[in-house]
Design a protein around this nucleic acid. Structure first.
Lengths: 153, 153
DNA sequence: GGCTATGCATGTATAGTTGCAAGTGTTGTC
DNA sequence: GACAACACTTGCAACTATACATGCATAGCC
């Protein structure tokens, strides 16, 4: 046995390091919104304006629950309700500039931190990391964004 | 530009894939305990029996909050209180077999899933993934377990 | 027009987390 | 032995999330 660190061990180590990155990037936003609220903003930022019911379904929330959660999100100024042009009974939710900025800030912090880590490696090391990670992503295959909701991410 | 996938992009992809793995592994435990409760069990499994106050500090919880959370964890049969042999005013918390099993189950599921992913690669690919991940871990440096508490992991 | 379905909000209820403040018992010190 | 410090629990209060049932307005269909 050449090395005591198996590929699975290394993966677990990396998963912890990456989780740390994610946690740090999100924590600043948690001063303003709760994790369930933040994930609503993330879904919104990925989908654009979307109907209340559809959005509730996306985050696996009961409509009544979600309606009140949205009350708080709107009250905080992160999103707005507007009546759908197509149907007067539909309510569209859109991110405000503040809401979009909150999500963007988290994303940018995450990317910046990853870049910082990678810059500690030599270019050739970076290349081998890049290739290996791409390999791993392909092997991991389709991941469901829905799953991440468990963690509120 | 040889490749459109930069190292940072690849890292983000992997972080999502790994977060999916973590989310899936934890979700089964969430049928029984809440995320804040589960993270107490994780800390306990890493530390062994520990005093109430110290444990509260480890999870960044107010003592009063924590005392009541522990009521629920104990009521659920995941941990037990016992008076410290050294001092009658100290209460030691220990995992029950059920509590340990709950944590172990999550860990095992996570490892199994990672192994499954890696098995899709050839041995030489696995080796390059292993080396690259190790490299990344080193570059990421010290991560604080505390940070992960934000995500409840 | 009348009926049903749809979309959202509200009424009501439960459970969990959180924090400040006060209370109880224990330990150590003077 | 009195008093302060410590460790934990409890009282009280607020907030969030969650869900079932209900109400109200709109839309679509016959």
């Amino acid at each position: 046995m050449r090395n005591t660190v198996t590929a699975a061990d290394a993966t677990l180590l990396v998963s912890r390091a990456l989780l740390g990155v994610v946690a740090r990037s999100v924590s600043s936003a948690l001063e303003f919104v709760t994790l369930p609220q933040f994930r609503v903003l993330v879904v919104l930022s990925g989908s654009g304006p979307i109907r209340m019911g559809a959005l509730a379904e996306r985050v696996h929330a009961n409509q009544s629950t979600f309606s009140r959660s949205m009350d708080k999100i709107v009250a905080g100024g992160w999103a707005v309700r507007s009546t759908s042009p197509g149907s007067r009974r539909e309510i569209l939710i859109s991110l405000t500039d503040a809401g979009r900025a909150l999500v963007d800030e988290v994303t940018e912090r995450r990317q910046a931190e990853i870049s910082t880590i990678l810059k500690r490696l030599t270019p050739s090391e970076q290349e081998s990391v890049r290739a290996a990670l791409e390999l791993f992503s392909i092997a991991a295959g389709e991941y469901s964004v829905e799953e991440l909701l468990v963690l509120g991410i």
